[in-house]
Amino acid sequence: METFTSYDGTELAFRTVGDGPPLLVLPGGPGRAAAYLGDLGDLAATRTLILPDTRGTGASATPADPGTFRVDRLVDDVEALRRHLGLERVDLLGHSAGGGLALLYAAEHPDRLTGLVLVTPSLTAVGAASDLGAEQVIAARAAEPWHAEAVAAYRKVKSARTFAEAAPHRMAFEPLMYGRWDDAARAHAAADPAQRSLAVSEHYYAGYTPDTERLRRQLGALPCPVLLLAGELDPWPTPAAVAAAAPLFPDVTIAVQPGGGHYPWLDDPAAFAATVEGFLRRTATTGAPAQGSR
């Protein structure tokens, strides 16, 4: 692990994995250390992944002010890391809640990005719904042996007022978040409690109200191309929710990974890496926009 000092003196940690052009990767959870990302399947074969632990998680220090865990304030940590790395412009990937953070960073620092990749992103940060058609996505898996228990847990997680209140139901709910509920998925889900800081989870959106009109103006003028990657079986965000977010951007490509859940690099590493790498190849060397599709 390496460290850097952020804007307020907090010591934050990151690790680098792989080989090739740099790709800065923001973890989600919210409040989950970046270890859950692994090497993003086969993507580390062609990219040097820069994987920071959000403040208060993993090897990063916990600041005295929990208000600095809020998603919009974390933008300054991302910028501090970019400066530390000495990268004039960077490709940025955000997963889940980290996708929301990536959106806010893009809105504030559009000139610092070569390409933006949003993998099953939370849309809360921009005031958009992530669960459009979720009931249909969930119902489509009714033949799975775990389905009834997972749906009951899903209802409890959805109605919980806090992450701590939802925590006892998360493991039963988790099969809905993976394309295949196999041994690898079970191990990945079981690692969540040890990797997650509930304090960060609880404060991530606390007191945050997106200025949706301002964000839409900023993202609508984003000069870099955007990849929106959804999992076909992901209930949050659903493919429908990801498609509905496409008009936020002037140059956007939508990809729906067949059989993919919320962690598509686990369900089909080769397909995931090919989609992301194919997009980045069109932007990383020259910064020229990719040909978007909606």
Rank of each mutant, 00 (worst) to 15 (best):
S6W: 08
V17H: 09
L24A: 11
L24T: 04
P27T: 12
P27V: 05
G29E: 04
R32G: 01
L43W: 04
A45R: 14
T48W: 13
L49M: 11
P52I: 12
T54C: 00
G56D: 13
T62H: 12
R70A: 11
L74A: 13
V78P: 03
E79M: 02
L81Q: 09
V90F: 04
L92W: 03
S96M: 07
A97H: 07
A102P: 01
L103N: 10
A106G: 01
L113T: 00
T120E: 15
T120I: 11
A125T: 05
A125Y: 04
S130Q: 15
L132E: 15
A134Y: 09
A148N: 07
P168Y: 01
M171V: 00
E174F: 06
L176R: 01
W181D: 05
A190W: 00
P193C: 00
A194M: 01
A199Q: 08
A199H: 02
S201N: 09
Y204R: 05
A206D: 13
T209M: 06
L219F: 06
P225F: 11
D234A: 07
D234R: 12
W236N: 15
W236M: 15
A243Q: 15
P247N: 14
L248K: 04
F249Y: 14
P250W: 01
V252I: 13
H262W: 05
P264A: 01
D268H: 10
A274L: 05
A284W: 13
A290C: 10
